[in-house]
Design a protein around this nucleic acid. Structure first.
Lengths: 111, 111
DNA sequence: CAGACGGTTTGACATGCGTCGAACTACTTT
DNA sequence: AAAGTAGTTCGACGCATGTCAAACCGTCTG
């Protein structure tokens, strides 16, 4: 399937700088924390509890995906997004874990 | 000592968002990796191997310090900077470790 | 086939940020 | 006191980014 409409980097091409830039926005970090359960989630605003427009949310999806943090599957007319947990853990051990820890989640809740 | 010219947040006030924003710049991440040895380092450009002007470096120092990542001591006419390793580890366990791991350092070297 | 649905893309806007050179400040050295 | 040293601060510039509204596009449903 050439010309994938939702390109994402190979596991080996995930760069630390891209990840950290993607995580520079609090909303995106919250999204990662929500996705940390390993499940595929709906791509709507309610799923992440962020008070933003859907176009903005879509922009964040793109940023996370292109940084290598997430992957997307298309099911009919709805998309589902998930964290690339295993590949991220292999590439940068402990990084995601530290962002989804108790203290990290608590800190963002008090934002 | 009121009116500290180099203010830094208390350990409890270190916010995840501030840290991640500070780490959004590759140069600053390199600085953190250099500082990860726990020692106090000179505040000059050579110490970090970054091809930038000293005013830019100073700006990065300020960003790291205000985010709570670093602390500064003044010795005569030279300043020395260090990572707040223990406080950061207590606040967000594993975060700094994941950024200073073998793979993280290697990734930034290939930037 | 005509809508409705779920989400993306586009274009525009304001803000933030990295960068630099030059001026400045505090301390030391001569 | 004058000059040097170490680093910060200031002002300006250009680029990147978060945000929104509106248009768009594939998919499903009546």
């Amino acid at each position: 399937m050439p010309d994938n409409p939702f390109p994402q980097p190979d596991a080996d091409d995930i760069r630390l700088t891209s990840i950290l830039r993607a995580l520079a926005d609090p909303g995106r970090v919250k999204m990662v924390q929500v996705l940390a359960d390993g499940e595929y989630h709906a791509c709507n605003v309610e799923a992440f509890g962020l008070d933003i427009q859907k176009s903005t949310l879509s922009h964040h999806f793109k940023t996370l995906r292109e940084a290598g943090l997430t992957t997307v599957v298309i099911e009919g007319r709805s998309h589902r997004i998930a964290l690339r947990s295993d590949e991220l853990e292999a590439r940068f051990p402990g990084l995601i874990a530290s962002l989804t820890s108790e203290s990290a989640v608590a800190d963002l809740r008090t934002a």
